[in-house]
Amino acid sequence: MQARLWVTSAAIAIFGSVASAQDASNLMIDGVPMVTEIAAPSHMENVDTIYSGWRFRAPETQALEMDDFDNPAFVFVEQAEEIWATEDGSQGKACASCHSIEDFAGLRATLPRVEDGKLVTLEDLINKSRVEHMGAEPWKWSSGSMTAMTALIGLQSRGMPMNVAIDGDAAAHWEAGKELYYQRVGQLDMACSNCHEDNYGVMIRADHLSQGQINGFPTYRLKNAKLNSIHGRFKGCMSNIRATPYAEGSEEFKALELYIASRGQGLSVETPSVRN
């Protein structure tokens, strides 16, 4: 325990000293301040303070998120704006036929949520409209179109605090997600918590481990130069520990998404963020 604290504070000291040109603690996006650090919600027993993934990135990566032009994700947001206005499906409708994009301010901050007893994510809501209202084909979970659209809609909540319901109808799903979070899986026999709760702030080879928050998703990753969905990232993480990943859109990943979203309660939505 003592050794880990030492390593963590050493890592944070090193990390802190790297940030020279700009303050590595304060995220302003086009002049609007974001909350990247806040007291952990009471249901988290082992963590006092929660931090956005932005805080763990190198200064150059951080800088990319601070300006909506420098942020490479926005070329995909613009693509989504075009999709928004384009008719698709048997009903001859576009998203714009029924919605104005500003209507969705606040939505992403409360997702996933329970509707008719089932947990729904933003991807579910988008596909529901496409299939039922537009008569269009559903988009694949992590496709270019879907990630661009979740980025555009998520952007409408940027700056608002993450605020998912975990009680009432959501409680059972939340408990299931919590159990998944702490469950060791895979050849490496690791749980999400082993890295993101026990060792955030520490270096894993040359990666600076974050708390695994999802307030910035979908995120533009430098690694693959495109937008990445939440479930896509979960899949990647599980593959890294050599576990067979659950499917994108599965009940497991939705429950996990709810639980992890609740671990970010109060952090600002940063969608679309820039990460490693």
Binding site: I204, R205, A206, D207, L209, K235, G236, C237, N240
Partner: peptide
């Protein structure tokens, strides 16, 4: 240029 630990 580093190799990440956890590229995913």
């Amino acid at each position: 240029v580093t190799i990440g630990g956890c590229g995913g």
